[in-house]
């Protein structure tokens, strides 16, 4: 016969296997229900916790949904102007070369207004980490078309779907910077399933560890949802992301240890 185990017996400190990292400030996140930003934040902070580098890490979050990231991440942070995070990070990393420096940018920020800063930081081979959250839309300003908005995808500024003949094509920034000599590690991940969350965390860990090598940019794209902007609930949005975003933005490593990963 099975013994009856009650919850009090299980919920003991010695049985604790997962808790919100204390490196996330104990306040509610400002993101919409189901938004991947929260999970991405948590993975970054778990990596910083596990590496024991809280006192050596400086984060930069520019304008976008994550503009208030400094309210949530218990590390020293700078808020940058729209698109300019890689410029700030360049200076901070060069002036404090032994600190761990990362940017946390959305697709509008990194792939539109900050295109020049992104490409040149990657091309110079700066030694910081870039976290690129791509949800194919401008979330904070209310769901406008982003450089990464898919063809035919609806947004508030492409209400009939993105017509590439008029609005141009989506920009695969991650593929683009893979081919620059200054990038050392480039990968594309997601945070919508447990397996993907684990892979993303591993990627972020590698991207931070790489900073010790001083061999160039480590770049982690996280394809994520924007249920509010996509006008879906979170579960639908994750499914839509798998069916529509992943074929265009396939997950996996693009460059590892300075070597481009050949696609089979």
């Amino acid at each position: 016969m099975e013994k009856t185990i009650n919850k009090e017996q299980i919920r003991k400190p010695e049985n604790l296997v997962y808790r919100r990292t204390p490196l996330l400030v104990d306040v509610p996140l400002s993101y919409c229900p189901g938004c991947g930003h929260g999970t991405a934040h948590r993975m970054i902070m778990e990596v910083i916790e596990e590496m024991g580098i809280q006192q050596d890490t400086i984060g930069i979050a520019p304008v976008g949904c994550s503009v208030l990231a400094y309210d949530f991440l218990d590390i020293d942070m700078q808020q940058a102007a729209h698109g300019r995070a890689p410029a700030l990070a360049t200076a901070i990393k060069r002036l404090w070369p032994d600190k761990f420096v990362f940017t946390y940018q959305g697709d509008g920020d990194l792939a539109a207004i900050g295109t020049a800063e992104t490409i040149h930081a990657c091309n110079r081979g700066e030694h910081f980490t870039m976290i690129f959250v791509n949800n194919g839309i401008y979330g904070m300003t209310g769901g406008q078309m982003a450089p990464t908005t898919l063809p035919h995808m609806r947004s508030s500024t492409s209400p009939y779907g993105r017509d590439v003949e008029i609005m141009g094509f989506p920009l695969k920034m991650t593929e683009l910077i893979t081919h620059l000599p200054g990038t050392y590690y480039v990968t594309r991940q997601s945070v919508h399933t447990p397996a993907n969350v684990r892979k993303t965390k591993k990627a972020i860990r590698k991207a931070f560890e790489n900073q010790k090598l001083k061999k160039g940019i480590s770049f982690v794209e996280i394809v994520s949802n924007c249920n509010s902007g996509w006008k879906m609930n979170a579960v639908q949005a994750n499914k839509w992301m798998e069916e529509n975003m992943f074929p265009f933005y396939p997950l996996g490593d693009l460059k590892v240890d300075g070597q481009i990963v050949e696609k089979k």
Binding site: L16, Y18, P33, G38
Partner: peptide
């Protein structure tokens, strides 16, 4: 707990 965007889930586990 891994996929919870707001990190609201704490997990306990024990062998019996």
């Amino acid at each position: 707990a891994l996929v919870c965007p707001d990190g609201c889930i704490t997990v306990y586990r024990m062998k019996v």
